[in-house]
């Protein structure tokens, strides 16, 4: 009994040590990003390329999920609102739910799956095949070329993808409403726009910058620090998705609390 307790205590201590060690390393990694991002030379070409890969190439996935989000949300909410005779509130409810919460979180989670794992696997594979070392011995800063560009790209592309998903979700909502009813597009859109205020859009957009930053940073951190061996590439990708997804929920929780406090 005593031995089991000691073993449990030791495993908890080890787990806590590793967790705090990881948090420390991620913090150092992030602080290196802020140091490197302001220092020239700037890898503009690579940044544009990454924006294209992360932003433009994610559009089909974001379009489909954004549309389904709006459609399903409308179809699922309709019966409940109908019970209270509040069907006319459907456009406002769908728009507010999408813009404030559903579109940012779902889009960020999808990007965590697609982008963060992609970055983790790509950099992990470059690490184990010594491509990062090759850059370093050629006197090229791999952190600047690979990490800074990717984090900047995710930080600016994820908010744009979320705004795009908001729009597509609203269109999905319009189609959802018209499955069981007949609402004019002009009337639907005016009701949507009337219900949205600055305090709905601003905090929701601000938190997407943080989502983007963490998606990029965690993917890069996991890939850049992959151990040697091909197995670690899979681990880096997997761990990037899990950690990025978890961080999205934590950021969202903090953002909601701050919004409640200040707006």
């Amino acid at each position: 009994m005593n031995t089991t307790l000691i073993a449990k205590k030791e495993s908890i201590t080890t787990y806590l040590k590793e967790t705090f060690n990881d948090i420390g390393k991620v913090t150092l990694f992030a602080s290196r990003f802020f140091r490197e991002v302001i220092k020239p030379p700037y890898e503009i070409k690579e940044l544009i390329k990454q924006c294209y890969i992360i932003g433009y190439k994610s559009l089909p996935l974001v379009t489909v999920t954004g549309f389904i989000m709006g459609l399903v949300l409308t179809l699922q909410s309709r019966p409940t609102l109908a019970k209270f005779g509040a069907e006319s509130w459907l456009p406002s409810m769908v728009a507010l739910s999408l813009i404030r919460e559903i579109a940012p979180v779902i889009t960020a989670l999808i990007c965590a799956g697609k982008v963060s794992s992609g970055i983790g696997a790509e950099l992990g594979s470059m690490k184990v095949t010594e491509q990062i070392d090759a850059m370093e011995v050629s006197a090229i800063n791999p952190f600047k070329y690979l990490v800074v560009t990717r984090i900047l790209a995710t930080t600016f592309m994820i908010p744009l993808l979320v705004i795009f998903a908001d729009g597509i979700g609203v269109i999905g909502g319009y189609i959802g409403i018209n499955i069981h009813g007949d609402v004019n597009l002009y009337r639907y859109l005016s009701q949507v726009l009337e219900s949205i205020t600055f305090s709905d859009i601003f905090p929701a957009t601000m938190k997407t910058f943080f989502f983007g930053f963490f998606i990029g940073m965690i993917g890069c951190y996991k890939g850049f620090n992959a151990a040697n061996g091909t197995e670690s590439v899979g681990k880096a990708a997997n761990s990037a998705v899990v950690t990025a997804s978890l961080s999205i929920f934590i950021i969202d929780m903090i953002a909601v609390q701050l919004t409640d406090l200040f707006l």
Partner: peptide
């Protein structure tokens, strides 16, 4: 160090070409 590195070439075991 980078000033010295440009004067040194390094051929990696698997060539480490950028994929």
């Amino acid at each position: 160090l980078n000033g010295i590195r440009v004067r040194i070439g390094f051929l990696f075991q698997n060539a480490a070409l950028y994929d």
